[in-house]
Design a protein around this nucleic acid. Structure first.
Length: 917
DNA sequence: AATGTCACG
DNA sequence: ACGTACGTGACATTG
């Protein structure tokens, strides 16, 4: 049987895939849609053709032979989108990883290479399939050479197939004649115009009759229409040139051996390298095809399970002054006195008192490159023993992936209590390195830093993801059924941080971010751990009462809404609500979202004056939100001691802010009175009060400092009302004569400046025309020229460096500025302006938190920092310490950074959060 | 799992 | 002509 060769037109297929698929990116922001689409098309073809050889041809980005010869025809070929351009090298890398032969040749287009190889293969008796999105290739079709044109449709990829006969049938001319048709009609995408007056139809008819442009030329006198007859003579030279341009070469000087392109089976393409790349690019549903091809790093040979106290003691003697990575493995359901199955499947009565009461499964420890210890609890090794070994460590540095969780396991007793020996506490705190916090600083736009990502990015080891490793099993499940396997994973938990830490630290050093990491983020880990452990009291009964009251209001509103709507429906469903409002009741100004009508508050606000039902819906929404998220939502988080404990996430936001989850205590209502009432249930413990300090306009002050704008700095120096001051200059009225409306508008302008100015955003916010909004902005910049200059520079420098930078060298990588999409680019510009401001404010309050926390412990106070809300700190202060706490807040918050304007704070005291804010 | 909405800074 | 203010997280609905 004759052999088969598949030839792929690289750029053409990549192009098809790029425009045929939505914009996919991996979590690093790499665009991947073209590569993904290409691979899918390629495998579909391979599965159909089952070829013996495969080769992909690419253009070289240099003047090509044909276009160089006829430079006048070249010119404005559309330049490639940046998002596509980036994927060309990725694609080549992927093909190389799969062992697919790539050819490219300077001076020749991919067409010429495909034509040449197709020709050679045919002469050697092979069958050939050429895959391209470009119909020009149809000229290569013979009865052995099949041209296949994939089309990406919603239903999947469909492929048009053309042998020579099919070309004749579809186009009425032979493949050879196809060239002549093109020469006559021209090709706008290739930028040659053909013969004037001859379009597709005339060209086809003439070529079908005479066979070639030469024959047409010879018979010029008799051909119709007359215009064609005349022009074929007049533009004969052009026609000849065009034919040359349109002709794909079949004799390019390629050095090529078919054996280099050989594949014995499609499985050959599923290589380890390709697997790793697919993983990197996050082609998750492609990974399944690779079966178990991944050769993960084999950790089991390095593990030593330590099960006696003697062995453990000996190991702990070895770690003096060493870098030690650790991971305390906590038992999830630490049900004291419950029977459990041990690993030989028997109910262990003996375990009743020992193992089941252990808080920990054990400790994973790495301090050598080729050894991982797992110290298992039981047999004399107690949880407390292991915890104390970490607390009283002799190691030089302690490395972990999630230091906050780990030190929370250690508890606040012993050395971890800063009150006991403050200096010792600081020395201890300084030993820690959190590799995920480090990875966050290097790229804060990912939001997640799992072990496998850290391994992939900062070591030469690949490990499975947690999900790949455990599947649906929990750690407990696996520990009970296959203990050795479960231990493997916790071995990674110390091994990966150990092998990644130097890479991470070197990188931070190179980026001048060590100060940020060592002096801000790492100490902050401990401050946050303390805040999380502390928690905040919520009055469950009061919350319950609040919820019941809401119920009444909700029921009334619901009934009234149903009545006005003339039917019952789910008010919480935007879809149903939209239909009721804009179809049944026929309300005006309907605006579509991608799924239906928009029913958001800013749309409904405009309608509420004329339609009572709309006000009721808005009020219903307000109550429903308060009930579900706050009244009932928070109640679920109240623990035994009446306290709620949030988690502060340090590695989530792109700007450097913290975030708060489960529950989120950074978005407790305050703007509306009804919602603000919820704050009354947050109260201080007996003998204590809340002291709440928030920075006054920290972002605008940061802007004043970073821009160096004298007028703004001056306004702050003289303690002026900044919005009034802005109103005065923007609306050109004396300071004293600024109206409340003008002040309100100026305030919105100030917000806009911080968010990254856009006339549209401001106009929407203020409900004014875009023209007026841009007038405001223009006035603003005339009055504050340095701010304009500064913001422009933010964009320029972000473009140049590919990141935005804060005062303390926090970086936010910026990929948006290079986008070919106008909107994305605009977004990038706003981000480039906002990130340094928001990020610097975040840096400052982080510094303040550490200083406030440390002062409290240094002075052995019983007051505690409980919450941070971006520009606000909440302290539960002992009444007798009140004055001292206020003093600390004043000094440390104001002293956190040295700006050209003062950092002012507003402080309030109260027994609950309502009164204290 | 995605979408819409809304709470905060 | 396009269609956006910056940064988050929780809840309810719906595919």
């Amino acid at each position: 049987m004759s052999k088969k060769l598949v030839l792929i037109d690289g750029h053409s297929i990549l192009n098809r895939a790029y425009y045929g698929l939505p914009d996919l990116t991996n979590s690093q922001g790499l665009h991947t849609n073209a590569v993904y689409g290409f691979i899918n098309i390629m495998f579909k073809i391979l599965e159909e053709e089952k070829p013996d050889y495969i080769t992909v041809a690419f253009d070289v980005h240099a003047p090509t032979f044909r276009h160089k010869m006829f430079e006048q025809y070249k010119g404005n070929r559309k330049s490639m989108d940046e998002e596509l351009r980036q994927q060309v090298p990725l694609m080549k890398k992927m093909l190389t990883a799969m062992g697919v032969k790539i050819i490219e040749l300077a001076g020749y287009e991919a067409d010429d290479l495909l034509g040449t190889l197709a020709h050679r293969a045919e002469q050697e008796g092979m069958n050939v399939a050429v895959i391209s999105g470009d119909r020009d290739l149809l000229q290569l079709a013979t009865d052995k050479v099949l041209i296949r044109i994939p089309k990406t449709k919603r239903t999947g990829t469909e492929i048009e197939n053309y042998y020579a006969a099919d070309v004749k049938e579809a186009y009425g001319v032979t493949p050879k004649e196809f060239i002549d048709v093109k020469a006559l009609q021209g090709d706008s995408s290739d930028n040659f115009s053909g013969v004037p007056g001859i379009g597709e139809k005339t060209a086809k008819t003439l070529v079908a009759e005479y066979g070639s442009i030469e024959a047409i030329h010879e018979n010029a006198a008799v051909i119709k229409p007359p215009r064609a007859s005349k022009n074929i003579v007049e533009y004969w030279d052009d026609a000849v040139l065009c034919k040359k341009l349109a002709t794909i070469l079949t004799d390019a000087p390629i050095e090529y051996d078919f054996e280099e392109a050989r594949i014995d089976s499609i499985d050959d393409l599923y290589t380890k390298e390709a697997y790793l790349m697919c993983k990197e690019l996050e082609f998750k549903n492609l990974l399944g095809r690779f079966d178990t091809k991944e050769e993960s790093f084999n950790v089991s040979e390095l593990i030593e399970v330590v099960d006696t106290i003697e062995k453990a003691d000996k190991i702990f003697e070895e770690i003096i002054d060493k870098d030690v990575a650790f991971y305390l493995v906590k038992r999830e359901n630490n049900n004291v006195g419950q029977f459990h199955q041990d690993n030989d499947g028997q109910l262990g009565l003996f375990d009743f008192a020992s193992k089941t009461e252990e808080e920990l499964y054990g400790l994973s420890l790495t301090f050598l490159k080729d050894k991982i210890y797992f110290m298992e609890t039981g047999n004399g090794i107690s949880s407390d023993y292991l915890k104390n070994k970490i607390k009283d460590t002799t190691a030089r540095r302690l490395i972990s992936r999630d230091v906050k969780s780990q030190i929370k396991i250690l508890g606040q007793d012993g050395i971890l209590d800063p009150a006991e020996d403050f200096d010792k506490y600081i020395a201890y705190r300084n030993k820690f390195i959190d590799v995920s916090v480090a990875a966050y600083l290097i790229n804060p736009t990912i939001g997640e830093y799992p072990l496998d990502d850290i391994a992939k990015s900062y070591s030469d080891i690949m490990i499975p993801t947690k999900k790949e490793f455990f599947g649906k099993q929990s750690f407990e499940d696996m520990y009970n059924s296959d203990k050795d396997k479960a231990i493997e994973y916790v071995a990674y938990e110390s091994y990966i941080p150990f092998v990644a830490k130097d890479t991470l630290l070197n990188r931070l050093d190179k980026e001048n971010m060590l100060h940020l990491f060592v002096d801000i983020e790492m100490p902050l880990v401990f401050v946050l751990a303390s805040m999380e452990k502390e928690g905040i009291i919520l009055d469950a009964d009061a919350l319950k009462e609040y919820s019941t009251n809401l119920d009444k209001g909700i029921a009334q509103l619901q009934e009234s809404i149903y009545q006005k709507a003339g039917e019952e429906f789910n008010i919480n469903s935007p879809k149903q609500l939209g239909v009721i409002l804009f179809e049944k009741l026929g309300l005006p100004n309907a605006k579509k979202t991608k799924t239906g009508y928009s029913t958001s508050a800013d749309i409904l606000d405009g309608l509420k004056a004329n339609y009572p039902i709309v006000s009721e819906i808005l009020e219903y929404r307000q109550l429903a939100k308060l009930k579900s998220t706050y009244a009932d939502g928070l109640r679920n988080y109240i623990e035994e001691d009446n306290r709620v404990r949030t988690t502060f996430n340090q590695t989530v936001t792109a700007t450097g802010r913290l975030s708060s989850t489960e529950p989120n205590l950074q978005n407790i209502p305050i703007r509306l009175e009804l919602g603000k009432q919820i704050r009354k249930v947050f109260h201080a413990k007996e003998g204590f009060v809340f002291v709440d300090s928030d920075y006054s306009q920290i972002e605008l002050r940061v802007l004043a400092h970073l821009s160096g704008d004298e007028k703004l700095i001056d306004a702050y120096k003289h303690g002026k009302d900044i919005h009034r001051s802005t109103a005065s200059v923007v609306f050109n009225v004396p300071f004293e004569e600024v109206t409340p409306l003008q002040r309100r508008n100026a305030k919105a302008v100030n917000f806009g400046i911080v968010y990254g100015v856009s006339a549209f955003g401001l106009s929407k916010d203020l409900g004014i025309s875009r023209k007026d909004a841009s007038e405001y902005i223009k006035n603003y910049f005339v009055q504050y020229p340095k701010i304009k200059e500064y913001l422009d520079n933010c964009i320029e420098s972000a473009k140049k460096n590919k990141y935005a930078l804060t005062m303390f060298n926090r970086k936010r990588p910026m990929v948006e500025l290079e986008s070919s999409n106008f909107m994305t680019r605009q977004f990038g510009e706003r981000v480039a302006m906002n990130s340094p401001i928001q990020g610097t404010a975040a840096d400052i309050i982080k510094i303040a938190m550490i200083r406030v926390h440390d002062r409290i412990f240094k002075e052995k106070l019983e007051s505690r920092l409980l919450l941070q809300v971006h520009d606000e700190l909440l302290i539960e202060a002992k009444e007798s310490e009140l004055d001292e706490v206020k003093k600390i807040l004043n000094e440390e918050m104001q002293g956190a950074a040295d700006l050209s304007v003062d950092l002012e704070i507003d402080t309030q005291v109260g027994t609950n959060w309502y009164d204290a804010h």
